[in-house]
């Protein structure tokens, strides 16, 4: 469904953020994109959703292909209409709008006005907490509730591909679990394809079908989520379960293969 090949992107014409990323998202899958701070995860999502330009960045090389069409230079509003929706990092809900208005804002590009109301009810079924807060200003919601709203707002656009940028950021562990369970449920029930960027590799891989690990703007590892979870290297570097990290780190890093 989505094929990114050798993507290179720079900020302010000089800071190289992506150095040839390639990845592939199949229809109906959840794909996890993992890596540490500054690895280029968010930049990848922004490039796919056309939002790089708003931050003075642009794609210098490579292609992004969505459903067989090259979408490198398409404006963000066109991409939303084509079915790619990005839930930005840090939730970015509209603070002064009510929960309900936020959901309507998500449906902005849709033409089928009549079914919006019933879709809002569907979002409330996935996230019952939102129903109770329907008329509250979104800025007063807790972090977890805001994240639910951000995902719900994304679903309102009826995307074919949902991009999630760090849904666990700044949220209590228990809520993170609930949110990820909901993401999995949405994927299974709606057949929605999801590309999720996470620092919390453990939880992301637990719901994903496939995973990529990137570092310094390159993919350094990829594989089935279950295989990645068992991989010793990964558990040491990203899952925080390794025993002697200090000793092992330096040589293991060198051994890693670059795709």
């Amino acid at each position: 469904m989505l094929r990114v090949s050798n993507l290179e992107a720079v900020y302010q014409k000089m800071i190289l953020a992506l150095r040839g990323i390639s990845l592939n998202v199949k229809e109906g899958q959840i794909v996890a994109l993992l890596g540490s701070n500054g690895a280029g995860k968010s930049t990848t999502l922004k490039a796919i959703s056309g939002l790089l330009a708003a931050e003075d960045g642009h794609i210098t090389d490579g292609t992004i292909e969505f459903q067989g069409e090259i979408i490198n230079n398409i404006s963000p509003d066109q991409l939303v209409k084509k079915g790619i929706f990005l839930c930005m990092e840090g939730r970015r809900i509209f603070k002064d709008l009510t929960v309900e208005e936020n959901l309507y804002a998500g449906a902005y590009t849709r033409k089928d006005r009549s079914s919006i109301k019933s879709d809002i009810e569907k979002i409330y079924e996935y996230f019952p907490k939102l129903k109770m807060l329907e008329h509250r200003k979104a800025g007063y919601l807790s972090g977890g509730e805001q994240q639910m709203l951000a995902i719900g707002r994304g679903l309102m656009a009826k995307p074919k591909l949902l991009l999630l940028d760090e849904p666990s950021l700044g949220i209590a562990p228990l809520l993170v679990k609930e949110i990820f369970e909901n993401i999995k449920k949405i994927n299974e029930e709606e057949g929605l394809t999801i590309l999720v960027v996470e620092q919390n590799a453990n939880i992301a891989l637990s719901i994903a079908h496939y995973g990529y690990i990137i570092e310094n703007g390159r993919v350094v590892m990829k594989g089935e989520a279950s295989a990645l979870l068992e991989d010793k290297n990964i558990s040491e570097h990203y899952l925080g379960t390794g025993k002697d990290i200090k000793e092992g780190r330096s040589n293991r890093r060198r051994q890693r293969i670059v795709w």
Partner: peptide, 16 residues
């Protein structure tokens, strides 16, 4: 109102 609130986020909603 959405643009007044958060311009970037409004952009990601597909608002012009």
């Amino acid at each position: 109102r959405a643009v007044a609130d958060d311009r970037q986020a409004a952009l990601s909603m597909g608002m012009s």
